[in-house]
Design a binder for these strands. Structure first.
Length: 274
DNA sequence: GCGCAGGTAATCT
DNA sequence: AGATTACCTGCG
């Protein structure tokens, strides 16, 4: 699967449960392999990662430079989730239960373009269906990396697709949305990197100018692609949590810059606990 | 066969 | 402003 001599081991002291992260609905290119390995594809990189027997130690298939320069940030390792959990405890019994259940979750720092397209595709799809569609367009239009793996397609690569090809990739009625977004970005009409300079409200407005992007998808892109930790995407599960578990009162507002991270624990609790 | 799912846009009051 | 409905596709 991978050459052991290329691997290094790294220490992660803070919360880190790769299984929970992979099931948390924020990333769709992280898959469990054999023997406890997880494979992550992000930008043009493939990472294999596995827990060692030693506590807090992980074996990873990259150089120290790639770990420090890319994956460390991808896994948001400069942020202390244990401190966030402690700071947010005691305000809501339901949130407390969610935090306890989801200990080990982190919010990944992912590519804005990939998040934009992925969450346009996500509407009215289950998590496995989203993953299938993302793999389809990566295989059909993305750059080949190795062993049949493909990078997520660039704006230019997706802009060269036809609507019927995107429908073949199981995008359905979202195909024209994705094509339109790809053309806007590839042409330079929208500069996704420049959006990083906007404040939260301006970013939300800019993202919602894409056809097929409403408030929920915009908040997902904002949270997962632009690191806006106060963004709270409200989907049916979060709406259900507010309605049925919090007596209709939104519990997220009180967590300020950590609201989006708390949302992640609640979403995981709603979708993964019995 | 048929209803429904991790939203959005268009089209109504 | 708020409510209703169609939309692809996969799954029970």
């Amino acid at each position: 699967m991978n050459t052991a001599s290329e691997n290094i081991t790294v220490t992660i002291q803070d919360d880190f449960d790769i299984k929970k992260i992979s099931e948390s609905g924020q990333c769709f290119r992280m898959t469990e392999q054999e023997d406890g390995w997880y494979r992550v594809i992000a930008r043009d990189d493939v990472l294999l990662i596995r827990k060692c027997d030693d506590p807090n130690r992980y074996e990873v298939s990259c150089s120290p430079q790639d770990w420090d320069g890319h994956w460390h940030d991808y896994f948001d390792l400069d942020r202390s989730y244990s401190e966030i959990r402690e700071a947010c405890e005691g305000k809501s019994d339901f949130v407390d239960a969610s935090i306890a259940f989801g200990k080990g979750l982190r919010v990944l720092n992912q590519d804005p373009w990939e998040m934009l397209i992925t969450f346009i595709i996500s509407q009215r799809k289950s998590m496995p269906a989203i993953a299938t569609a993302v793999e389809n367009i990566s295989r059909m239009f993305g750059t080949h990396l190795s062993d049949g793996m493909h990078a997520f397609p660039t704006p230019e690569q997706l802009a060269s697709a036809s609507e019927s090809q995107l429908r073949e990739a199981s995008l359905g009625y979202r195909a024209p949305y994705v094509l339109d977004a790809a053309r806007r970005v590839a042409s330079g009409y929208v500069d996704l990197e420049a959006l990083a300079k906007l404040d939260d409200d301006e970013l939300q407005e800019a993202l919602m100018s894409f056809v097929g992007v409403g408030p929920k998808v915009a908040n997902c892109v904002s949270l997962f692609g632009y690191g806006r930790s106060s963004s709270v995407p409200i989907d049916v599960w979060i709406a259900r949590a507010i309605d049925e578990e919090c007596n209709g009162t939104n519990p997220f507002d009180q967590f300020g810059e950590d609201a989006g991270i708390i949302q992640q624990y609640v979403f995981f609790y709603m979708t993964r606990s019995k």
